[in-house]
Write a protein that binds this DNA or RNA. Structure first.
Length: 849
RNA sequence: GCCGGAGUGGCGAAAUUGGCAGACGCGCUGGAUUCAAAAUCCAGUGAGGUUCACGCCUCGUGUCGGUUCGAGUCCGACCUCCGGCACCA
């Protein structure tokens, strides 16, 4: 018997798969389809074992589905635009494209040596002009529909990356990529109107029942819907008379409005500028406001500052009480949420409470929570935010909070001073980036005609080649006159191109549709092809994309649906968020120097051992700390499989063992068959895309191998025959038949995990057509059924004995057997048996007193 | 502060509906094989007690309490860790 040489085996099968184009697919309406996808890769330079883990999860599912007869689409590609390439260019004086293409070549080579079943002919890179052309096309479609628009606004600016960031890309006031503190800039920017889909994005999270709850919760929080009301407080003029001008506030607690004893404005609120002008002490007022506006942005957004404010000297009328109340400016009121103005109800909102106490403003209780001592504004030491019974509120007194909100909103509406309103935390998606290595935004500015879309037949707007990257100044594209200067598509006069590029999250929001038709040069993809392959049945990737990528992709899906390009509402049916692979407690990265290169692992142990180990070490969702220790164990297991199967491969290949149902099997043989079929059941269940318990599937296969060794040792066959040349010597046909059945099932079930080894063994067993042709092994419930059961017998909750029974033993017989066990008697004698619980097929529980 | 998730041997973990806690693997210990080692095969391995021995007993899934014949699993309170959101009105 030849020894197991993983490298030779792996090379052989990788070449064969490539030669046979084994994983390339076309649409086939006669077969059920399965679209297995892993998040595509950023070509950072080198794949590490963390990437490998994710790609393996997708590959195991894809390979299993292929064996089950599905037409499986399993593509791969590159999220190739982005800042690191440009930064590398600045540092190393290379071109971002060269850096990117070199990295792709290297990483592709690494991945190919892992034997992943990708349809490489569908490979795409988002920096391909054939790809980003359709980014531009989709942008123009959105522009036509008013979903892409331009506005001047305060945006997040990372001084280190020299670019704008979306809200989603700012964490704790810092850049998601480089952790530099983010500044605010006022810029003209392009936005995608994701808020138009806010409700749908929120509501349809309810349909995503194969997504982790964690991700759905994060998305719901991110969208942040709150139902409330807009209420207008009329401004009071210098004579104390109400005017027709008003301050609109947003509140979710209109039921507390009788307790609204003042109004607060954000420092940036437009009325503040008017008040400055109208103030008798304009200069002092302006200085005051300036101080608030200059407050550190990060501190303000994270609530790390003391609540402060000042009286504007102006007043407004509470439309419910008719009282005139003070208008203050407060540093904690956010200009970008709601209307930038709030009604302050100190008795029932903690922030307002603190503010009121600090400045001695009135606190008035208007809600009495049930089961609480009667509250009083003068004695409160904290706001009471709980709902309850409305008090001291005129005609609304005695309503419950929830009802009061509805009634009072209707009342405001009827009097023309308010209406129901839904607010979202979600903001429109700013996509302009002042960088080079991305998709040019296909817009031309003409002094005469204004912004003009680039005509579709002029797409793509190609990225010009730039020789030098300095990282200084504005958009690099602005420094290329031949790019900037163009003619207006409308009037033909001189015009300038937009020089910003798109956020790369645009690229990754629809790439999974392009895979369905990657070489189409007349459309982003053929509608019928996406109709066949979509939606994605299984999608796996890092949980760090739970909000950004996954919410943007859901948004794009809905836009594409409304454009008539896709039919489904949601792009990803099942989502698996894979746990990260850490090294020394940190995510692997080149800069940290803690990267574990899969090449080293495959050189030492083989790709199959690496694959198996990463699937076995922990559940896919769980974060793991990388150690080499267990990898050796996986390599050992594969050797064990080889030494079990190889000696008997010829026996299988000869195919002269009699059919199992014609044989009279002994109890050891029946037990092995039972194990075989029970393993088929367990592994099949664990590999179900809704489950994907890959670690327990592997351990089930290990158990089967252990049982095979034990059986073969007893039967003196296979690895236990003294004569290697005659591994089946002395074995009866029954022994051989059950062992052959077991090893065939074993090899087939192992193949999604360790495809090279499995194909090699399968071929050695005389099968020329590969494991896909063989299909997934069939589970036979009758064979797997236990012949006898061993049930525990508990006395007062402690196991005191076990009884072995036939599965069809009656409850009464079981009860008698249990009570007659000597160990049970020892604990029941002299006591009264008060109760006997018989749980069929589970246990017997006896209660004594 | 709010919303999720988790806490099980020396380690990674398992336990699908409330039913024998610790499957499987790593590590360790012992045995076989070997001149020897590696590799391989076999056996043992939660803690403590007890027995010449087969065994038997007690404790044990973050802490405290509860429900139940029976709780890692359900309920209540708390502790710790991880993730998300956070002055969002």
């Amino acid at each position: 018997m030849r020894d197991y040489n993983p490298h030779a085996v792996e090379r052989k099968w990788q070449h064969r798969w490539a030669d046979r184009r084994a994983f390339e697919v076309t649409e086939d309406p006669a077969r059920p389809k399965f679209y297995s996808l892993v998040m595509f890769a950023y070509p950072s330079g080198h794949a590490h074992v963390g990437h490998v883990r994710n790609y393996m999860i997708g590959d195991v599912v894809a390979r299993m589905k292929r064996m089950r007869g599905y037409n499986v689409l399993h593509p791969f590609g590159w999220d190739a635009f982005g800042l690191p390439a440009e930064n590398a260019a600045i540092q190393n004086k290379t071109h971002p494209e060269k850096w990117t293409r070199d990295n792709i070549a290297h990483m592709k080579d690494q991945l190919q040596r892992l034997g992943i079943s990708y349809a490489w002919e569908r490979e795409l890179a988002t920096c391909d002009r054939e790809y980003y052309k359709w980014n531009q096309w989709l942008f123009l479609k959105m522009y036509e529909r008013g979903l892409a628009y331009r506005k001047r606004s305060a945006v997040n600016w990372c001084p280190s990356c020299q670019t704008v960031l979306a809200n989603e890309q700012v964490n704790d006031g810092r850049c998601w990529r480089c952790e530099t503190e983010v500044e605010t800039r006022d810029l003209e920017q392009w936005f995608l109107r994701i808020t138009q889909y806010a409700d749908e994005l929120l509501d349809q999270t309810a349909d995503l029942n194969e997504w982790p709850d964690k991700v759905l919760t994060m998305q719901r929080n991110w969208i942040g819907r709150s139902d409330g009301a807009l209420v207008s407080f009329a401004l009071v003029d210098a004579d104390g008379e109400a005017t027709t001008d008003g301050i609109e506030v947003f509140t979710t607690r209109i039921d507390t409005i009788f307790g609204a004893t003042f109004v607060l404005l954000a420092p940036e609120h437009p009325l503040v500028d008017r008040f400055i002008v109208e103030s008798p002490e304009s200069d002092a007022f302006r200085t005051r406001v300036g101080q608030f506006r200059a407050l550190d942005r990060t501190a303000r957004l994270t609530g790390q500052i003391e609540k402060e404010g000042f009286d504007t000297g102006r007043r407004a009328v509470n439309p419910f009480t008719g009282e005139s109340v003070a208008i203050w400016v407060a540093n904690f009121v956010l200009a970008e949420y709601g209307t930038g103005a709030i009604m302050a109800v100190p008795a029932h909102d903690q922030r307002d409470f603190e503010f009121a106490r600090k400045y001695g403003l009135p606190v008035r209780v208007v809600i009495q929570p049930p089961d609480a001592v009667p509250l009083h504004g003068d004695t409160l030491d904290a706001a009471s935010a709980d709902p309850g019974r409305v008090v001291d509120s005129g005609e609304f007194t005695d309503l419950e909070s929830a009802e009061a909100r509805a009634v009072m909103t209707r009342d405001a509406e009827s009097r023309g001073c308010g209406r129901g309103q839904v607010q979202y935390r979600l903001k429109d998606w700013g996509i302009s980036r002042q960088r080079y290595w991305g998709t040019p935004i296909p817009i031309i500015y003409c002094d005469a005609c204004g912004p003009q879309p680039v005509p579709v037949d002029a797409l793509p707007v190609e990225l010009p080649t730039i020789d030098e990257f300095t990282g200084r100044g504005d958009s690099p594209l602005a420094q290329v006159p031949e790019f900037v200067n163009t003619t207006c598509p409308s009037c033909g006069g001189n015009a300038r191109r937009e020089t910003d590029t798109m956020d790369t999250f645009v690229d990754s929001s629809w790439y999974f549709y392009r895979y369905c038709d990657p070489h189409n040069d007349t459309a982003p993809f053929d509608v019928d092809k996406v109709k066949y392959w979509g939606p994605i049945d299984f999608y796996s990737g890092g949980v760090e994309h739970a909000i950004l990528h996954l919410i943007y992709s859901r948004f794009f899906c809905k836009v594409l649906r409304d454009l008539g390009l896709v039919e489904h509402d949601e792009p990803f049916t099942r989502l698996l968020t894979q746990g990260m692979v850490l090294r020394h407690g940190a995510v692997m990265s080149k800069s940290r120097g803690n990267v574990v290169d899969p090449d080293e692992m495959t050189t030492t142990f083989g790709a199959d051992a690496l694959r198996l180990y990463e699937m076995f070490v922990a559940p896919p969702e769980k974060e793991i700390e990388w150690t080499d220790a267990g990898l050796e164990g996986s390599a050992r297991f594969l050797g064990r499989v080889w030494r079990m199967v190889m000696p008997l491969a010829d026996v299988v290949a000869r195919g002269d063992t009699p059919p199992l149902d014609t044989l009279d099997l002994g109890s050891a043989e029946r037990a092995l068959r039972r194990k075989t079929h029970d393993t088929i059941r367990r592994v099949s269940e664990d590999l179900d895309p809704r489950r994907v318990h890959l670690n327990t599937a592997v351990s089930a296969l290990m158990e089967l191998v252990n049982d095979l060794y034990a059986y073969c040792e007893g039967a003196r066959i296979g690895p236990f025959t003294p004569d290697v040349e005659a591994p089946a010597a002395g074995a009866g046909p029954a022994s051989l038949a059950v062992v052959c059945e077991a090893i065939e099932a074993l090899v087939l079930m192992l193949s999604p995990f360790t495809p090279h080894l499995a194909e090699e063994l399968w071929e050695s067993m005389g099968h020329a057509d590969g494991v896909d042709a063989a299909g997934w092994p069939t589970f036979d419930a009758a064979v797997a059924r236990a012949e006898e059961l061993v049930l525990p017998v508990q006395v007062n909750g402690k196991v005191r004995a076990r009884v072995t029974i036939a599965p069809d033993t009656s409850d009464e017989d079981l009860r008698k057997m249990a009570l007659s066990q000597p160990q049970v008697q020892a604990h029941t004698t002299g006591k009264r048996v008060s109760r006997v619980v018989v749980v069929p097929r589970k246990l017997v529980s006896i209660v004594v007193k």
